[in-house]
Simulated assay, not measured.
Amino acid sequence: LQMPMAAQSVLLGGHVRVGLEDNLYLDKGVFASNAQLVERAAGIITRLGARAVTPMDARRMLGLRNPHE
């Protein structure tokens, strides 16, 4: 259910967060990697006319400092 919820969030003007902390599967019975989950979510976001942000953009939006500074 993670990807349908991600799509709904984008449609309602919200943000999306994905990862193995929330979901272990790419498809029913198919284990995912974080990279696969991010790729799938980014594809959904793009097809819905929104854009995925970089980690740096997300930090800026949330008012977090760059951990590399």
Rank of each mutant, 00 (worst) to 15 (best):
A35D: 15
Q36F: 02
A41M: 05
A41W: 00
D57L: 01
V30E: 05
R60D: 14
A42N: 09
E21G: 03
M5L: 12
R51M: 05
A6M: 14
E69V: 02
A7T: 08
G49S: 03
H68T: 08
A6I: 13
V30F: 03
H68I: 12
N34F: 14
L24M: 11
N34Q: 15
Y25L: 11
Q8P: 00
R59L: 11
R40I: 02
R17P: 00
V18T: 15
G19K: 06
M56L: 14
G43H: 07
L12D: 15
F31G: 05
V18E: 04
T54Y: 06
A6W: 12
I45K: 00
A32E: 08
G49T: 02
A32V: 09
E69Q: 07
A58E: 08
I44N: 00
N66H: 07
E69N: 03
E69W: 03
T54M: 12
A50F: 01
T46Q: 03
T54I: 04
P55D: 10
V53K: 05
A41Y: 01
N34L: 12
A52M: 09
R65T: 06
V38S: 06
A42I: 10
V16I: 15
G19S: 06
R17V: 15
V16S: 03
V16G: 05
S9E: 11
Y25P: 00
G14Y: 15
Q8T: 15
A52I: 07
I45V: 09
S9K: 08
H68S: 08
N66G: 02
N23F: 04
G13Q: 12
M61Y: 11
G29V: 00
V16L: 12
R51T: 12
G19N: 05
T54Q: 10
A6N: 14
N66S: 11
A41S: 05
H68W: 15
R17W: 04
L20Q: 09
R60T: 14
A52E: 11
G43K: 08
Q36H: 06
I45F: 00
H68A: 10
L37A: 01
S9N: 07
S33K: 08
L62T: 07
L11E: 06
M56C: 04
D57R: 03
D57E: 15
E21F: 00
A42T: 15
P67I: 04
F31C: 04
G43Y: 01
A35I: 15
N34H: 10
R65S: 05
H15A: 13
D22H: 13
K28N: 09
V18N: 04
P4F: 04
V18K: 05
V18C: 05
R40W: 02
H15W: 11
Y25F: 13
V18A: 05
L48F: 07
V30M: 06
G14V: 10
V10W: 01
A58G: 03
I44W: 01
R17M: 09
M61N: 04
A6H: 10
H15N: 13
M56D: 15
S33G: 09
E21D: 13
P4G: 03
T46F: 00
S9M: 14
G14P: 07
Y25I: 08
R17S: 14
M61I: 09
